[in-house]
């Protein structure tokens, strides 16, 4: 008998079983692909880290100092990006985080100069950062403004305020915080403790409380979220407030690292934060696929990449081109499992 005849002679239940098996196999493949894609950011970070370690060893570089640099480079970006995850997961966007960080650091620094109190510096940084962050969302909520545009405007305003603070209260185009206030904290241990502590807190809030679930729901489907009774405005304001904590901690970490603050302090953090989130696998549209640890992963990936490139490449523009290409490639790889049918907007 030919194969066709064999198949045709199969009973309906058998054909059904084969079809079910095929469907199950396809689903299994898709699941495996999805799982592989899920771990791409982690894999990328690990690969970059390994590459750096191997190449640095080959070149005979001091890895202890190298890792100190990596942690120090990643700290500011990771803190801001971790806080920003609350904003992005709820479907909002904020470009003013870098400028906010600078203003918070400047005000905290000025308080430090005046009072000499470390506690007051930390408190000021946190209060100013949270206030400015909440201001964005309150203005946007109160006046029905698009949050995104609001944050762009506020980015310019905060930048101008920072310059005004420096020209009014600074000397020689800078605000010099006395290093004696913060020197005791200027070490890798403090930075690791700050990072891990904040990350654990944010992960707890995001994964184990109603807050995180509500944010993902709001980011995923604002209409359904509204219909289920989630107050989008209140939740957005809370998200911005939580992001403000990350910004406040980052501004304090910046003062600890480099106590003399100028207009260019932390200038690249705003954009590097976005890149870090994307490198770490964060979905920029928010929703259920948001990941709190994406920020840390991304920040360290970038820090490993910078350090790796520094071994062989001088001239920051080559590094920039490589970063740009890698950035797009990593995001593309990550999005393979979830390609939209229509173009994203």
């Amino acid at each position: 008998m030919s194969e066709e005849k064999v198949i045709n002679t199969l009973s309906a239940p058998d054909a059904e079983a084969i079809a079910e098996k095929e469907t199950a196999a396809r689903m299994k493949k898709a699941l495996i692909a999805q799982n592989i894609v899920k771990y791409i950011p982690l894999g990328a970070c690990a690969v970059l880290g390994l590459l750096y370690v191997i190449c640095a060893l080959i070149e005979g570089y001091d890895l202890a100092i190298g890792f100190k640099v990596i942690i120090s480079n990643a700290t500011l970006v990771a803190l801001v990006a971790t806080g920003a995850t609350f904003i992005f997961s709820a479907g909002s966007f904020d470009l003013s985080l870098g400028s906010n960080m600078l203003v918070s650091a400047l005000v905290g620094g000025l308080v430090g100069i005046k009072t000499g109190s470390l506690f007051l510096v930390i408190l000021t940084c946190l209060v100013v950062a949270i206030s400015l962050s909440v201001l964005n969302s309150v203005l946007a909520s109160l006046f029905n403004l698009p949050v995104f545009i609001m944050t762009i405007v506020m980015m310019n305003v905060y930048g101008a305020i920072a310059t005004l603070l420096i020209t009014t209260f600074g000397t020689n185009a800078a605000v010099p915080v006395p290093p004696s206030i913060v020197n005791s904290l200027n070490n890798t241990g403090f930075r690791i403790a700050l990072l891990v502590g904040f990350e654990v807190l944010c992960c707890f809030l995001f994964y184990f409380t109603k807050l995180g679930r509500k944010q993902k729901f709001l980011g995923g489907n604002p209409l359904c979220a509204d219909l289920t009774g989630i107050n989008a405005k209140k939740l957005t304001i809370l998200s911005f407030a939580l992001a403000g904590i990350g910004i406040g901690l980052a501004s304090f970490a910046m003062i600890v690292q480099t106590p003399t603050l100028s207009a260019s302090s932390g200038s690249s953090v705003g954009m590097n934060m976005l890149i870090a989130l994307v490198f770490g696998g964060m979905n920029m549209n928010g929703g259920p696929r948001s990941k709190m640890y994406a920020a840390m992963l991304g920040a360290f990936s970038m820090a490993f990449l910078d350090s790796f490139m520094n071994i062989y490449v001088t001239g920051s523009w080559y590094l920039q081109i490589v970063k740009g290409i890698l950035f797009v490639v990593v995001v593309f790889l990550f999005s393979i499992a979830n390609r939209p049918k229509m173009l994203e907007r």
Binding site: V69, S262, G266, S267, S268, I311
Partner: peptide, 19 residues
């Protein structure tokens, strides 16, 4: 090339690791 004080410190530490 550095654009801020933290980049300066980072670059110094990087040079230190390179001996």
């Amino acid at each position: 090339t550095t654009a801020s004080s933290s980049e300066e410190v980072s670059a110094i530490n990087t040079y230190a690791s390179k001996g």
